[in-house]
Design a protein around this nucleic acid. Structure first.
Lengths: 201, 201
DNA sequence: TGTTTATGAATGAAGG
DNA sequence: CCTTCATTCATAAACA
């Protein structure tokens, strides 16, 4: 019996078999499995001990990140015998992957309805969601909300002293905006004064 | 001040107060604050430590996304009436003292018809594909011929072969078969229904 | 048995 | 909005 441990660690501890399988998969080229794959993997590995999807997810994330990190760190000490020529496609980011270039990034994000260009905020009524967490925890630092309790927030909450410029946008339907393209570039965040537009890849 | 440290992390790490307030605001209903709101929030949280607008922006983005993922996962444990109890099956190998308390992976496989009835969520057509899988389409596990790419290490692992229902699809190939004829819009989020998040530590 | 290392987990930041 | 990368934290495991 091992499941009855009182002081059971909250941390997942993979078994040898699980690690073997995970590494095998990794060596096959699997680096960021889809949710679907993750589930299957977890199910599979569940035969060797408890495991959840998140464990698989984290495992791959960490494994990949660490391999890359280690590769980057151990750079400059060994003579690159079979170094990969810098002219190897690359030109992307720090993608010094050693896996076969079987990558196809043909993603077509721009979907009708996906607000990619968020620039101006229209005064939309509001898009309340199933946020069941609408439980005011009695903020003591900020002025509490008026009295709205049962009423679904028809406003983001005026509790924080915002100027109540009720401007909530619904991410449905494109907000649309006829902003001049003089600035060029700039999409999405171009409105926010924060976050750099594009640091410069 | 303390920001004059030579090796100061460029990364913002919120103070407890800041997190408290941010979470409070989030629970008040604020999810995607406007630029002007962000500024105000940042201003107020600045009393507890350095903070910028982008931090607030990212915080809300991440918080929202992650909570959503978590809830999505919770919503995913519905169709399984025969969930496997934590009785732990098969732990007959090397007692590695695993076994969580009562947390059993109740995610199983959504398999078919995982009708994620979103409330007000729009049909975000989605695509996934990104990881550089060696196999273009036939993503069989393990003992697979390298397809000419000699680099994969030969793992002495036995073939366990799990099947990949839907691997990376370049979002082409109309998957059709929405399964859900009730909903007008076909929608199947493919992102990871994992990755929880715990309050604070 | 105390210290170091490996690694699971969490989250800020960014890209698209 | 969705996905991924980079850092960092926390802790079990490995080690001397």
């Amino acid at each position: 019996m091992a499941e009855g441990q009182s002081t059971m660690s909250t941390r997942w501890n993979p078994t040898k078999e699980q690690i073997e399988l995970l590494e095998a998969m990794y060596s096959q080229g699997i680096r960021t499995p889809s949710a679907d794959q993750i589930e299957q993997i977890a199910s599979r590995l569940g035969m060797y001990g408890n495991i959840e999807g998140k464990n698989v997810f984290y495992w791959f994330q960490n494994h990949k990140a660490r391999e890359r990190q280690r590769q980057k760190q151990e750079r400059g000490v060994f003579g690159n015998q079979f170094l990969q020529p810098p002219s190897f496609s690359g030109a992307s980011h720090t993608h010094t992957e050693v896996l076969p270039p079987q990558q196809q990034s043909a993603m077509a994000m721009p979907k009708v309805g996906s607000t990619l260009t968020l620039k101006e905020q229209k005064t939309y009524t509001f898009q309340h969601s199933q946020d069941s967490l609408c439980e005011p925890q009695t903020l003591e630092l900020f002025p509490l909300h008026p009295t709205g309790i049962a009423e679904y927030r028809s406003e983001p909450v005026s509790a924080f002293g915002f100027q109540s410029s009720v401007r909530n946008r619904t991410m449905n339907e494109n907000i649309d905006e006829q902003n001049d393209a003089s600035s060029g570039g700039g999409h999405f965040h171009n409105f926010f004064p924060f976050i750099p537009q594009h640091p410069g890849k």
